[in-house]
Structure formats: structure tokens, C-alpha cells
Amino acid sequence: MGFSERQIHASQTGAALCMRHEPASDGAIGVIHILHGLAEHSERYDAFARQLSQSGFHVYAHDHRGHGFTEAPGAPLGSFDSGGEGARLVLADIASIHDHVADAHPGLPVLLFGHSMGGTIALRYAFEHPESLTGVAAWNASLITGLLGRAGMWILAWERFRLGSDVPSRLLPRLTFGEWAKSVKSRRTEFDWLSRDPAAVDAYVADPLCGWPASVGMWRDVQEMALTVTDMTNAPEAARRLPWHLLGGGRDPATMFGKAVTAQVNRMRAAGFDDVTLELLPEMRHETLNEIDRDEAIAPLIRWFTAKAVSQASV
């Protein structure tokens, strides 16, 4: 069964998670779990999964609740959970996948990869479950803090009061997707900020499971997780000992053109994180995996994954 074929994983939360698995092509050295971003789904990582498989990794990915083909109680498309437990349930779904991985591949090191919102979730999961991981890569995570981050929470609190949690946010898409679109002056579409590759942008625009409006509650859950992982007092000692690989693009408006990623790395290093790699790619937009020169970023990442997996196996 290849990555493009959907499996159903029954999460302990009651969700029927759409899960994908690309087996290691030969001689597995580890497992990589991919966490996708906001308003997209796991199938978009097919090419990346095949590259990882060819490098000796079993690859897993799933559609988060409220995304793609996953079905979960109280989580229609665009909402993690109507009961206000979205962040907790998203993390519990990941833990459920990891229980499955541990049964299927006992003894193999497990590494986590997250893009954008998935990067934020990867950080949050690793802060809570560092003992279960060998390393974490968070790419293009929009870790906006300070007044901007707090302002986002104030806006969402006002929208929740006026509109409720389960309806699409009216203001956050304008302040995020809308403003990010404006960063590309000669844009063909409103999603050119994702990549300089027209084919990748067109595929995103044409995909009915991409680009939809997230609910007030989902935006709130994501922003709350971002604020949590940028506060280093929330990081346990075991998380500080993990290897980390953070990447940002110099033309990615979602990360303040890489500044938010650099700021996170600086916070982590100042807090005593031992092994933090920072990659800043000046010409990259938001979806590094779908950029025109994506292999320039992917090759070093695979070498990093391989080194961490082999190092763990030798312990």
C-alpha cells in the first residue's frame, strides 16, 4: 500500500483519521511522521514521502481533524472540535498514530516533521512527549508572538463572543492569507505567496480540500499552541535535549520573512536547547517542499534525519 492510498486509523479520541504510509524501500533506519499545515491535507506530501522512503524511512502522515478525509465527532471541515478541546484532541490523535507506529516498527527511532501549522503542532507535541521522539523538524512555522500574537487572540475572543467558535473567522483570513497574498506584487493568484512554482500554486487552488476558511475555534487553537511553544518555560528538560531543525524562507510572509523562525531558534538556544539547526533560504516562499528549488532544502534535511536516526540506533 503506497502513500497515496488512504487508510483509516481509529484514534483513541474517537476520530477516524485518514492515515497514509509509505514503507521504507529497503533497510529501514527510522520512522518519520509528517504533520501537514492549515487548510490542506496529507496527500500533498506524496513526493516528499517517497524521497524519505528511498532514504530508509517508513513515512506516516494523517489528516488532522477538521481537514482532508479525516472524520471526527464535532469536527467538520475547518474545525478541530466544537467543544473547545481542539488542541488537546489534535495532540491525542498524534499520540494514537505513534502508538500504532511503535507496534508496527518496534525499536525504530521516530522523528517528527511539521510544515506551517504542522510545525507549530510538532513543537507543542514534542514539548509534551519528548521521550517518544528522536528529533523534530519544524518548517515555515508561523510563530508570531508579542503584540501581534496577543492581538490575534483578542480578535478571536471578540469574534467568538459575537459569532461563536464554529463559524469561519471573518477577520483572521484577511489579516493572514489576505495580507500574505499582497506580499507578491505581480501575483497571478491570491496564493502565489505559497511558492514560486506556478504548477504547485495551481494544484493548491484547484484542490477542494485546500484553502477553505478555518473556524474561529481552529484559529484560536492554533494561535494558542503558537503562544505556548514560544514560551520556553513550557519546555521540559527532555525537550531541550532533543535535536531540532527549523527552517524559514526569506520571502515567506507567514513567518515575517523568516524573522519568526529566527526568533524561535534564538529563544530555544537561550533556554538551553542543546542541538538546534537553523536554515534560512533567502528566495523561498511559504511551502518550501513545493518550491522550484525544493531539493536544495530537502537534501540537507534528509541528511539531518539520517544522522539523528543512525545516532539514536547506535546508543
Results as ranks from 00 to 15, higher is better:
F127E: 06
F127N: 07
E128W: 03
E128T: 13
E128I: 13
E128R: 12
H129C: 15
H129F: 14
H129K: 15
P130E: 12
P130G: 07
P130W: 11
E131A: 11
S132E: 13
L133P: 10
V136R: 09
V136H: 10
A137Y: 13
A138G: 01
A138N: 03
N140D: 15
N140A: 13
A141R: 03
A141L: 07
A141S: 09
S142G: 02
L143R: 04
T145R: 10
T145A: 14
G146F: 08
G146L: 03
G146M: 02
L147E: 09
L147W: 02
L148H: 10
L148F: 12
G149N: 14
R150C: 01
A151N: 04
G152F: 10
G152E: 03
I155E: 00
I155P: 08
I155D: 00
L156Q: 11
A157L: 07
A157T: 13
E159N: 09
E159R: 05
E159A: 08
R160W: 07
F161Q: 11
G164N: 01
S165K: 07
S165Y: 05
D166L: 00
V167C: 08
V167W: 01
P168L: 01
S169N: 06
S169Y: 12
S169P: 02
S169F: 09
R170W: 08
L171F: 12
L172S: 03
P173S: 10
P173Q: 04
P173W: 09
R174H: 07
T176Q: 12
T176D: 03
F177D: 13
F177S: 11
F177C: 15
G178A: 12
E179L: 10
E179R: 13
E179K: 14
E179A: 06
W180H: 12
W180G: 02
A181T: 15
S183C: 03
V184M: 08
V184A: 12
V184E: 06
K185M: 05
S186G: 04
S186V: 02
R187Q: 08
R187Y: 13
R188Q: 11
R188I: 14
R188C: 03
R188L: 04
R188Y: 00
R188T: 09
F191H: 15
F191T: 01
F191Q: 00
D192N: 02
W193I: 10
L194P: 09
S195R: 04
S195Q: 05
S195E: 09
R196L: 12
D197M: 04
P198F: 13
A200I: 06
A200R: 14
A200C: 11
V201T: 06
V201Q: 05
V201K: 04
D202E: 14
Y204L: 12
Y204N: 13
V205E: 12
A206V: 04
A206K: 06
P208L: 06
L209N: 15
C210P: 05
C210W: 05
G211D: 03
W212T: 01
W212D: 00
P213S: 00
A214Y: 08
A214I: 00
A214P: 01
A214W: 08
S215R: 03
V216K: 03
G217D: 00
M218G: 00
M218A: 06
R220M: 11
R220V: 02
D221R: 07
D221G: 08
V222C: 13
Q223W: 15
